[in-house]
């Protein structure tokens, strides 16, 4: 009796909890509303099965609880029933899988007009690189990395000269324009995760991974790392601001390009050499 009631309570209680509890996903800020829809669809299909199975179980416990004179029925199997159940289950599963795969097809097909933004992870900080006027990112390689070339941009690649570099600071992106995030890491695995975008993907050293979104509302959102990356994993934060085109243009024009960074570095170096040259004769004296 109690057992059956508890089972009924859990089955129905779980549904009620689902409906009334205050914890649900954040308001979406990207085009991936379909993902949310697929989750809701999956929830109701599977939820129905859960409730049905548990209620049936509770019913059996109430009805067939042992008592004097009761003897169980002898029935090794029931082919027809089993076939029916297999077919129904397969239909239910297909009903979740098909929409899922359709949306996945969209997820892996990047629109042609998407602009590229590079996300570079390192322990434990986010860096970004945006293409300059030419709309293209220069090549990178680990061997080019040094104190003055944080991103490892190939100095001989003309595409890379006007790349905008953002080191450990916030990222801004344009609303309504599809963006392809190119992800790479210089050390361990990380994962670029903005809950409001729904999309996420690992950053893997040695390869470039990607995903794409179209931001659909303005605002500033947290970036978290979603792949354990060492002791500072939980502190690897950043933020991304979605804004209208004008604001974005203003922001990007204030950022430094690779060329400028290199030039500044050269400048520093020359100054230092100069200073040293000035020092040296004195030292000789």
């Amino acid at each position: 009796m109690i057992v059956a009631l508890v089972l009924i309570f859990i089955a129905l209680g779980s549904v009620v909890f689902h409906v009334v509890n205050p914890w649900w996903w954040t308001e979406i800020a990207s085009n991936w509303g379909y993902i949310d829809d697929t989750i809701v669809l999956t929830f109701w299909i599977t939820g129905t099965v859960f409730v049905a199975v548990i209620l049936f179980m509770a019913y059996c416990i109430l009805k067939f609880r042992t008592e004097k004179g009761r003897r169980a029925h002898y029935e090794p199997e029931n082919k027809k029933l089993e076939i029916w159940l297999s077919v129904l289950t397969s239909i239910g599963v297909a009903g979740m899988l098909a929409p899922g795969l359709i949306v996945w097809q969209q997820y892996v097909t990047v629109p042609e007009n998407a602009s590229e933004i590079e996300v570079m992870g390192q322990q434990w900080q986010w860096n970004f690189r945006l293409p300059g006027k030419d709309g293209r990112l220069g090549k990178t390689e680990i061997r080019f990395v040094d104190d003055d070339n944080y991103f490892g941009v190939d100095p001989n690649d003309p595409n890379g000269q006007d790349d905008v570099l953002i080191e450990g600071d916030d990222l801004h992106i344009r609303m309504g324009k599809p963006i392809k995030f190119l992800l790479r890491s210089v050390d361990v695995l990380h994962d670029f995760y903005v809950p409001q975008f729904r999309a996420k993907m690992d950053l893997v050293p040695g390869v470039i991974t990607y995903f794409w979104i179209t931001p659909i509302r303005t605002g500033t959102f947290d970036i978290l790392c979603a792949e354990l990356c060492g002791i500072g994993h939980h502190e690897m934060r950043g933020s991304v601001t979605v804004e209208k085109d004008a604001a974005f243009q203003e922001w990007i024009s204030e950022q430094e390009t690779f060329e400028e960074v290199q030039a500044a570095a050269l400048h520093r170096k020359l100054n230092k050499e100069l200073a040293q040259n000035e020092l040296e004769p004195r030292a000789k004296n």
């Binding site: 599977t46 599963v93 899922g100 795969l101 996945w104 997820y107 809950p195 729904r198």
Partner: peptide, 14 residues
């Protein structure tokens, strides 16, 4: 079934 369905796993993984 949520996590196995690749697109649903994307927001929920990790």
């Amino acid at each position: 079934l949520f996590l196995g369905n690749v697109i649903v796993d994307i927001p929920l993984s990790d």
